[in-house]
C-alpha cells in the first residue's frame, strides 16, 4: 500500500513528529517551497509566452533570424522547466499529504482495515518515483500524449 511515497524520509519524519506546533511549522515551510516553485514555473510560462509572441511577430515581418532565436528560447525554456516541474509535483504531493495527516483522527492507508486494501490513491499509489514521472508525462503533457517529444 502506497509503497514509494509513504516510505520517503520526509514523510516518515513527519509521521514521527508528534508536536502539533512542529508539524504546523513543517507544513508552513513546505507551503513556502511549493509557492516558490510555482512562481518559477509561472514566470517561465510568462517568458515563454513573450518569446512566442515575438516569434509570431518576427515571422509576420519575415525576420527569419530573430524568429529562430526566439523559437530556440521557447524550446529551451520548456526543457529547462522539466526539473522544476518534477520537483513541484513531489513537493505538492508532500504538502497535501502533510495537510491531510494533520487532520484529527488521520489513519495511514496502510493502517486502514483489510477490506479497504484495494483503494486507488492516485499518485500516492505508484510504486516508484520513475513510475510517477512516466505517468505525469503521459497524463499531463499534451505533446507527449500526441507522441511529440522535445528531445527529438
Amino acid at each position: 500500500m502506497i509503497p514509494w511515497f509513504y516510505s520517503t524520509d520526509e514523510l516518515k519524519k513527519f509521521q514521527n513528529t508528534k508536536s502539533q506546533r512542529k508539524r504546523e511549522k513543517v507544513i508552513l515551510q513546505q507551503r513556502e517551497y511549493v509557492e516558490q516553485q510555482k512562481k518559477i514555473l509561472l514566470e517561465k510560462a510568462d517568458d515563454i509566452k513573450l518569446n512566442a509572441k515575438d516569434v509570431a511577430r518576427r515571422v509576420k515581418y519575415g525576420d527569419k533570424h530573430r524568429a529562430t532565436e526566439s523559437m530556440m528560447s521557447v524550446a529551451m525554456d520548456l526543457k529547462n522547466a522539466e526539473p522544476v516541474l518534477s520537483n513541484y509535483v513531489n513537493n505538492l504531493l508532500l504538502l497535501r499529504v502533510y495537510e491531510t495527516m494533520h487532520i484529527n483522527g488521520y489513519v495511514d492507508p496502510s493502517a486502514l482495515p483489510e477490506a479497504m486494501a484495494d483503494i486507488d490513491y492516485g499518485l500516492y499509489s505508484l510504486s516508484t518515483e520513475d513510475e510517477l514521472r512516466d505517468m505525469l508525462s503521459q497524463a499531463t503533457d499534451p505533446l507527449a500524449v500526441l507522441g511529440i517529444s522535445l528531445n527529438e
Binding site: 510555482k38 514555473l41 509561472l42 517561465k44 510560462a45 515563454i48 509566452k49 518569446n51 512566442a52 509572441k53 516569434v55 509570431a56 526566439s70 523559437m71 521557447v74 525554456d77 520548456l78 522547466a81 516541474l85 513541484y88 509535483v89 505538492l92 504531493l93 497535501r96 499529504v97 495537510e99 491531510t100 487532520i103 492507508p109 486502514l112 479497504m116 483503494i119 486507488d120 490513491y121 492516485g122 499518485l123 500516492y124 499509489s125 505525469l136 497524463a139 499531463t140 503533457d141 499534451p142 505533446l143
Partner: peptide, 29 residues
Amino acid sequence: AEAVAEILRLRVLRIEQMVELSALSVARA
C-alpha cells in the same frame, strides 16, 4: 509558438489536478 508556450501552464494545472485528486482519495478513504 504561443500554443506550445501555453502547454507549460496547462501541465502545471493538470499536475495540480492529479495531486488534488490523489489528496481527495486519501481524505475520502
